[in-house]
Design a protein around this nucleic acid. Structure first.
Lengths: 193, 193
DNA sequence: CACTTTTATTGAACTAGTTCAATATTTGTA
DNA sequence: TACAAATATTGAACTAGTTCAATAAAAGTG
């Protein structure tokens, strides 16, 4: 049951069956319906989530009320506003389900307990945070060095599972371009072939 | 001696004097002259560094041979290509001194030892990586929501120490704009006043 | 100090991507 | 199944930022 969480952890560290059971006991399962929010701007992020199924979008609203997507999440990804969760301060982010989804949630207290009781969990999150940081650095460099069409192609080829769940509007808010321009890129690509 | 490293660590975790001494023993001090490289694309990042003084630039070369700066580092900052260091694989990045500098270097083997012997060091890097990740997320959102002049002003007001060490060319490669445009932003700002 | 190299400034022509508006298509829902 | 609402497409006018080139200023070096 929930072996997907176990498999996810195994990608990063070794954990005995007992250790996993203890860690797993800190989570509760929750269903989240399409368009519902796991977190809103101003809220304190009380839980981190592991996605069992479904799809989420993490975004912020800028001064012109434009939505800017930080990232998406599907099965096997983690969800958090790290700053808000770690420091228990109000969030600047929204986390919204794009379809009916299920997540495993761990509260701040339980995560602190896990860090104390299971030193390997400290390592797990150190390693996962590093990997996510590397991905973010790559994204920063790509935003500087690739044009919109190249970033569009990169996203589609690296995250096809996610791409097929998204509207142009959602994808545009991740790529940092207008949704009209996504449309133009698409038609440009299809006439090329 | 090197109390700057101790102070840096104290910002994130508590460490006893003995623990610090052990951790400190894993580092060696090195001078790096202006324009020298701590890391080049294709090298494996064998050391992580803590900057005692001076200034560095971490950048990559894209397909058009443009330099894109990931970040700068001054006194009290850490230097690494996390992906290359962690996985001991060839780097895509350059780390270059912008002025004569001194760093404390820790090798991969010594860092692994530190993780094993000092569990708090695992926490230290988990926490520091999280903070750096949050800063990167903020940068991604800013690149989407702020125009060049706003990003220029943000950098100058948040990193004045660094800004005054940089040429327009270096700053431009961080902001993701041409250096000519940095010049135009500057003159636009000065005529505004 | 003189000389070379790098950096900064400025303007003119250009382009990638935006904005707005109108229309078509898809999706959700009673 | 029909209607409403959201999404996608397309074109025309626009703009933020680029590119290129020429000149000035600053910094590095013998």
């Amino acid at each position: 049951m929930d072996s997907i969480l176990k498999e996810n952890i195994k990608k990063h560290i070794d954990l005995s069956e007992d250790e996993f059971k203890l860690f797993r006991s800190y989570f509760t399962k929750k269903k989240i319906l399409k368009k519902e929010y796991l977190l809103r701007e101003g809220d304190i992020c009380k839980y981190e989530g592991f996605i069992l199924n479904g799809c989420f979008r993490v975004f912020s609203l800028d001064k012109n009320a434009n939505e800017n997507t930080l990232h998406f999440g599907i099965k096997d990804w983690w969800l958090s506003d790290i700053d808000s969760f770690t420091n228990q301060i109000p969030s600047q982010l929204f986390i919204q389900a794009l379809e009916d989804s299920e997540v495993l949630l761990i509260s701040w207290n339980n995560k602190m307990k896990a860090y104390q009781e299971l030193p390997k969990i400290e390592r797990l999150f150190r390693v996962m945070t590093q990997k996510y940081l590397v991905a973010n650095q790559r994204r920063i460099l790509q935003k500087q060095s690739l044009n919109s069409e190249e970033r569009y192609n990169y996203f589609l080829s690296h995250y096809p599972e996610i791409a097929k769940k998204l509207t142009n509007i959602q994808l545009a808010s991740y790529l940092g371009i207008s949704h009209e321009f996504v449309s133009k890129i698409r038609s440009r690509i299809s006439t090329k072939k």
